[in-house]
Amino acid sequence: MKILQVYRSEPNSDIKTLVAILNRDREADEFYLNVENPDYDLLVAKVIAADKTVSWW
C-alpha cells in the first residue's frame, strides 16, 4: 500500500498524529501545496503512483 499525504496548509498536531498512524507499515510519500509555485505535474505523478491520497485541509 502506497499512501500519499498532501498538505493544503501547514499540518497541525492532529494531522501529524493521524498521518503517523496512517503511514505505519506503509510506503508513504508527501507533497506540500502551500507553496508559491507547486509542481502540479509532480503532484499528479505522485497521486497516480499512490494507492491512496489524503489531501489535508
Partner: peptide, 18 residues
Amino acid sequence: LGEALRDADFIIPYGLSK
C-alpha cells in the same frame, strides 16, 4: 480515528482547517 482511517477507502478533509 487514525486506526479507523487505515481501513477507509477514502478520507476527505472537508473544506478548511480550524
